[in-house]
């Protein structure tokens, strides 16, 4: 047993190292005096340069704005869709779920290209709107997939009890059903936000000239070499999210869900 435990610890550690090695590398390099990968001394100059670079800052702004709008819209659309789909049965329901799978099965490449062609065909000029529409489209399925299982778990009688006690259906939904869905909605929103933030391929095909997100900016820089200030920005972003996540998990004000040990009887 002990040997098994030891190996599983090692295994988890190796996966962790695999996932974090490049991230740590980038973080370290963001403090490198030199531009290349040879370490030549600690420096904060890339952080200074970062705040001088309008290009990077505007790309950051675009990225966050697009992620925020897309994730929010996708969540609203997705939650409504879940409630609707859940009230359906049989074939209609399956048809919806199949529709939901299209963006997931259709590679991002095909989705991005198809959208680009459609925008052109209907004479829609590329800009923020096209990026956001595209992002909403590929984010909604993730929201649906996060919320749907929670909705299925929700005890129908809870809603019925609320209505029985005199609540109007809409009020009952917001006061009783929605709180139960909340974990699913939150994880769906976060997933959508993260996917939008990290997306490159779809943005690449649906963005207009002159608009850059961090992804497309980095891609255009790859040939000339990526500026270390980009590493600096990523380090700041990553560390802030890490702190937020830790605060959310371990901070005060959050009820700790202590699992009941089910075996002791």
């Amino acid at each position: 047993m002990r040997v098994k435990k030891f190996f599983s610890q090692i295994y988890m550690a190796l996966i962790f190292i695999f996932m974090y090695a490049p991230i740590v590398t980038l973080m370290v390099l963001s403090f490198n005096e030199n531009k290349g990968r040879r370490w030549s001394g600690f420096s904060l100059k890339w952080y200074g340069e970062l705040f001088q670079s309008d290009m990077i800052l505007s790309a950051l702004g675009n990225t966050l704005l697009i992620a925020f709008i897309s994730a929010t819209a996708a969540t609203v659309l997705g939650v409504l869709a879940c409630v609707g789909i859940n009230s359906l049965k049989g074939k209609a329901r399956n048809a919806y779920l199949a529709l939901n799978n299209i963006p997931m099965l259709n590679s991002e490449l095909v989705t991005g290209l198809a959208m680009m062609l459609a925008f052109i065909a209907f004479g829609i000029s590329f800009g923020y709107a096209t990026i956001i529409v595209a992002h909403i489209t590929f984010c909604v399925p993730y929201v649906v997939l996060s919320v749907m299982p929670k909705l299925r778990q929700t005890d129908k009688s809870v809603y019925e009890a609320a209505v029985d006690l005199g609540a109007k259906p809409v009020y009952a939904f917001f006061k009783v059903v929605l709180p139960e869905l909340m974990p699913g909605i939150v994880s769906g929103y976060l997933l959508a936000f993260t996917m939008s933030l990290d997306d490159f391929i779809i943005t690449h095909f649906t963005k207009g000239a002159g608009i850059n997100t961090l992804s497309t900016l980095i891609y255009s820089e790859v040939r000339k070499g990526i500026k270390p200030s980009m590493n600096a920005l990523s380090t700041i972003l990553f560390v802030s999210v890490l702190i937020l996540l830790c605060a959310g998990t371990y901070g005060p004000g959050r009820k700790k869900k202590t699992e009941k040990r089910e075996k002791v009887k």
Binding site: T25, L26, L197, V222
Partner: peptide, 19 residues
């Protein structure tokens, strides 16, 4: 381990393997 890294851009993370 698996969601957090996505906050560091995918191209950048891939590019880091070059280093």
């Amino acid at each position: 381990v698996f969601i957090l890294p996505m906050w560091m851009n995918f191209l950048l993370r891939t590019y880091a393997w070059l280093n």
